[in-house]
Design a protein around this nucleic acid. Structure first.
Lengths: 196, 196
DNA sequence: GCACGAACGCACAGATCGTTGCGTTAGCTT
DNA sequence: AAGCTAACGCAACGATCTGTGCGTTCGTGC
């Protein structure tokens, strides 16, 4: 490489940095993301390496090294785009209804073995950044629902408390115990959080 | 290799299989465990490989390949011995007191960055087995405390419910958010679980 | 359209990893 | 104290990974 720029890599791959988010780059990115998810679903375990992903995606390994640099960053990128927008904020008219529906959706999402594999791999390789990618914008969604209820004039718990009561059990079950919670169980968590 | 046995590896490394848990094996095991924890604390990330661990431990890489086979199994072994016995079950006379003290201890344990790094790496490389290793025997401890209270004749929550209310938030905070909970916050979780 | 340059493909090389066979060390048994 | 054998050290190999330089393709702006 020249001397000034540390690496040829065009900055963060996720957000278009103003350079060229055009057709081909987007296609490559999509193919790579799909390849990662496919390999994760096949429980390749250790064998999730840059060359393997590249071969599966039909892309040259050099491209992956240049764009992502390591499997850790690649997984963090995949996790970010996988977990953003996977669950929509419902609007049922009441906080209880919103939270119940939302918790059930999250539980359903977390029950997918592929999602679990992605989260575990991202946590392991991505470190702090990967962990945040797995949370996605779920705390923000929680805050949005609570804020809406407060605007309606209702009594609401703090976002922190709601995260403890909902996201805590949901994620703990999914990651640490083999048995993810059912949507019914997730709805029950809401009943424990909100006063009867 | 011969033909019958798939690998020369002497079964599970943790429990002595009756063969020879003698002095040298134990020393090697301890050195390797220490090396893993040291490297984890240095945030080596991807570079936590068998040869690197072997060099740090002053042991030949072949030994690690034969005893553990992969970084995943090695990390699961380290996590198991790290998380078993790290927290003792208190006996304060009341369930509330027991849980408060226990939750505070777990929170303190989870606040250690090295423990976090170990858990994340184990989750990533160890898969299902690694996840169980990170839980340790904490659900059993929870069950023991609850059972003791029930023997005293008190009203007790289910173990499942207690795990949701305590382990869920504790682990979620530690793993997914950068800020692990304080012992005081952990004690507050107990107050939310038990009726006032 | 046309030129510019970012992103990709390709080939090659250095480094590292995973595995095997064999000799040596050192627990364990009697 | 002497033998047995599990466990370790050693050296070498093939496979795989990581990184670089250069030519080519194809979005993007003029």
């Amino acid at each position: 490489m020249a001397a000034s720029t540390p690496v040829t890599r065009p900055r963060t791959p996720g957000a278009a940095t103003g350079s060229r988010p055009g057709g081909r780059s987007a296609r490559v990115r999509a193919a790579v993301h799909r390849a990662v998810e496919e390999l994760l679903a096949e429980e390749v375990g250790d064998a999730l390496t840059i060359p393997v992903v590249a071969a599966r995606a039909g892309v040259h390994a050099t491209t992956l090294y240049r764009r992502w640099g390591s499997v850790g960053e690649l997984l963090a990128d995949v996790a970010t785009s996988r977990f953003s927008g996977d669950v929509v904020v419902p609007d049922t008219g009441s906080l209880r209804g919103d939270l119940q529906r939302w918790a059930a959706d999250v539980a359903t999402d977390l029950a997918d073995p592929d999602v679990l594999a992605l989260m575990r791999a991202t946590l392991g390789a991505g470190g702090e950044q990967g962990a945040c990618a797995c949370r996605g914008d779920r705390e923000d969604q929680l805050a949005a629902m609570i804020e809406r209820e407060r605007a309606r004039g209702g009594a609401v718990p703090t976002v922190e408390r709601a995260a403890d009561a909902l996201l805590g059990p949901l994620y703990y079950r999914a990651i640490f115990t083999g048995e993810p919670g059912s949507p019914e169980w997730a709805r029950g968590l809401v009943d424990l959080l909100l006063p009867a």
